[in-house]
């Protein structure tokens, strides 16, 4: 009996794994279609701007709070370890390296995957199950170009901006903590902080955010665009948009960090 249940558990796992990799393959095909459609007129500028507003401006509050808290907490937690070696003066540069190289792009991407990715998945999913996408098709409007291309472009363009904003607010949070303890001025804090930051750091983080934004947009759109099973499917689309985006973001993070490290050497 036990052997039997073990076997079926294995089968279930292998089926889920199959489905996951099939999903990744299908997302690859969806991405190919995106590049085919994105550069052909008519361009949906008005809708792209509206989506940029939805992705960027509407995420500002959440990004602000998260980044400010991240800055304060990271600085506070790092202080005792540096203090042991009498190296609290390194705190600004340590915080800057951590925030700009790693935390800002990754945390912004995870916030966006949760907020924007699920929103796109649910929105397009509900449009699919209520036949709004078919309605667009029969009005001779290309729904892929109007719904998918615009959203993917918005997430791709907005994520680097959100990342830079997040880095700034997190640094302000860090400054607050440093100023409270060491009475450092804003100017000397930022001078110290940026001593160890190179152009490559900022460029790689911006590039990473572009890739993360594209991933969030494409996965959210893919899951929403091909939603099935009615309203239950909408929930599933939103959920799997977040899970798959986060998984891909971590993989991309590892790859990009490796590549950037080669350049650094």
């Amino acid at each position: 009996m036990r052997v039997k249940s073990k076997k079926s558990g294995k089968q279930v796992f292998s089926r889920q794994l199959d489905a996951f990799f099939m999903d990744i393959y299908a997302i690859g095909q969806f991405t190919g279609r995106f590049f085919k459609e994105a550069f052909l007129p008519p361009y949906e500028w008005k809708e792209i701007i509206r989506q940029c507003y939805m992705v960027g401006y509407k995420s500002l509050a959440l990004v602000s709070v998260t980044s400010f808290v991240t800055g304060i907490v990271f600085t506070k937690q790092s202080r005792p370890s540096l203090a042991e070696f009498g190296a609290t003066s390194w705190l600004p540069s340590l915080v800057a390296i951590a925030i700009i190289r790693a935390l800002a792009p990754l945390v912004t991407a995870l916030i966006a995957a949760g907020k924007v990715g699920s929103n796109i998945g649910a929105e397009l999913g509900s449009m699919r199950v209520t036949e709004q996408i078919e309605a667009m098709e029969v009005s001779a409007v290309n729904p892929f170009r109007y719904l998918v291309v615009t959203r993917v472009m918005a997430t791709t363009f907005m994520l680097p901006l959100l990342m830079l904003y997040m880095a700034l607010i997190a640094m302000m949070g860090a400054y607050l903590n440093v100023h409270q303890n060491e009475q450092t001025s804003l100017v000397s804090f930022f001078e110290n902080a940026f001593e160890q930051i190179s152009f490559l750091d900022i460029f790689s983080s911006t590039f990473k955010s572009l890739i993360f934004g594209f991933t969030i947009g494409i996965v959210g759109c893919y899951k929403g665009y091909y939603t099935t099973q009615g309203t239950q499917g909408v929930g599933k689309a939103a959920n799997s948009a977040v899970v798959i985006s986060m998984f891909l973001i971590f993989i991309e993070e590892i790859i990009i960090v490796q590549v950037v490290n080669w350049f650094r050497i």
């Binding site: 209520t130 709004q132 078919e134 309605a135 098709e137 001779a140």
Partner: peptide, 20 residues
């Protein structure tokens, strides 16, 4: 050509399919 044809066809959906 399909888009041109679709402009001559009106489709009223079962659940109206209005853009929310």
């Amino acid at each position: 050509e399909l888009d041109a044809l679709r402009l001559k066809i009106g489709f009223s959906f079962q659940h109206s399919a209005l853009y929310d």
